[in-house]
Design a protein around this nucleic acid. Structure first.
Lengths: 289, 289
DNA sequence: TGACGCTTGGAATATTTGTTCCATATAGTG
DNA sequence: CACTATATGGAACAAATATTCCAAGCGTCA
């Protein structure tokens, strides 16, 4: 191949469809300098606006000068922005990225298709979130924030389906430099002696309620340590041990539940705790990534 | 009303939506001179092209000179073509007016109260889910499902913010009796030798991309083991190693990101894999709780 | 530290695109 | 058939927009 030695003038064929564009973007996106990467990121998040924007608009959105965007277009194999835009204009079919219609398309695609599943779970997640916003018990939430922000160490426990939530909380607390311990059950150690007075437990459990979670909550209660529970129902056994209980009712699709609402509640709780501690001049949060 | 007698300078309010535009068109379309009628006909048949065309294009399409089209725009109540085009760009430039304003509202709503925070995170989650539905790449999803359903063992890896997602996937696979291994980094063991030919890796990573995740993906790629990536951007380094890449762009609130969309995608993936395996008569899923 | 190469921002320029205006054409009316 | 009113096309102009180019910045390697 003789052309490999000539590096500069090769024009590696401009994409002729949005798919090709995406592929090419994925190819060259690595090891791109800062500004060009900003272009790549912004465009990839806004394919739908390329057809109807000016260089200046898009450059502003990507927070780069217009000339950087021009360079990016050429890097993608186009002669300039206009040529790139022409491609997007030809492919432009308005109404496509409209959420409602797109969702409808996703869902009615014969039910075996993976994309249809995404549609269903998206819908389930949205319903769960709406439901959470509607039914949230503000007083209980305030109480939970008070208990957890005043404590020394927060002990987070949740298994099975609740484990991802517990893990996420541990991550967020870590990011905010708030002392917290994740009880992850590794090695079947229950770490019950890690509970110390002045601490608090944040227990997350849904039916079927995990024995280990209940046991830790009981332990805490017996020793006068505050317990905040996140659970599904007032009839949940954890409520007996809890000083504050937050209810989350996830909408399920088929046999499967998402965690959208639970996670939204969890992160709100964490951030509120961070804010409360900041107000009191306690170790201040680094913001997380 | 004195102004009715003055006919020329009245500016009968430009349409502000496509519906209004259509109504107005219907009103004035009768008894229009030839060229203007051609404009009306052509535009009404090509609403979707108005946002992405030039005066010259549309005029050529309607087979009239550009000046005729200009007159038509003014007749419709716009100051000129640009103003008319702006309306079309805004009106159904992809789902925007709504999405953009909601996003803007999100950014500055900071009352500090815990309940308000929940509202914000609920909204962020909903936006993320809508966004996922809008931008999902069905082809990539199908590819991912194919790769992961055909493999022997699925290796799931994700750290930091991605860890909850990985953990949830591991849980769901377990429930469905699908062989999977969660690489959790306990004891700093990287378990790279657990990868065997015929397996597949499902790697989840967001900026800042975890070294360990990238390392495992690279390892897999070098040994010809399929890699499916879930990440945020084409510029993410993981895409270099991936046979199929799924993009999720979570909306953030303040410095914090929810996981709603990522989890919705993850669970869809898992369920689709379960269904695909069932069709092939492979070890059949118990449904999860 | 100094020189090299790549990246960056912005100002200058080129091009495209929109808009106005007027001479001409056409249709309608007394 | 003239005369008026309205419609039309195109050329000239104005504005917006894309594109290029170069001086300055920055990091890297000798």
């Amino acid at each position: 191949m003789p052309d490999t030695e000539k590096s500069a003038p090769r024009t590696p064929a401009a994409p002729t469809s949005v798919e090709e564009f995406r592929d090419r973007l994925a190819c060259i996106a690595h090891g791109l300098p800062k500004r060009l990467r900003q272009c790549a990121d912004h465009l990839s998040r806004n394919y739908d606006r390329i057809a109807v924007s000016t260089v200046a608009d898009l450059a502003a959105g990507a927070d780069v000068p217009p000339s950087a965007l021009m360079r990016f277009c050429q890097l993608m194999g186009f002669s300039g922005f206009s040529e790139m835009q022409r491609m997007f204009r030809e492919a432009y079919a308005p109404g496509w990225p409209d959420y409602a219609t797109r969702l409808a398309n996703l869902k009615d695609g014969t039910s075996g298709k993976p994309a249809a599943l995404v549609g269903e779970f998206v819908e389930a997640g949205r319903l769960s979130l709406e439901n959470l916003a509607r039914t949230l018990d503000e007083a209980a939430l305030d109480r939970a924030v008070a208990l957890l922000s005043q404590s020394e160490t927060r002990h987070i426990i949740g298994f099975r389906r609740s484990f991802p939530v517990a893990a996420y909380l541990a991550y967020v607390f870590e990011k905010m430099a708030i002392p917290a311990m994740l009880h992850d059950g590794v090695g079947k150690l229950d770490h019950r002696f890690a509970l110390r007075s002045g601490d608090a437990v944040l227990a997350i459990t849904f039916a079927p309620y995990s024995e280990d979670t209940l046991a830790l909550a009981l332990q805490a209660r017996q020793r006068g340590i505050a317990v905040v529970a996140v659970t599904d129902q007032p009839s949940s056994p954890i409520t007996q041990y809890a000083d504050a209980t937050l209810y989350v009712d996830e909408v399920d699709f088929g046999a499967f539940r998402s965690l959208s609402a639970t996670l939204a509640l969890a992160i709100s709780l964490a951030v509120a705790i961070g804010a409360a501690r900041e107000r009191k001049g306690l170790p201040s949060p680094d913001k997380m990534e």
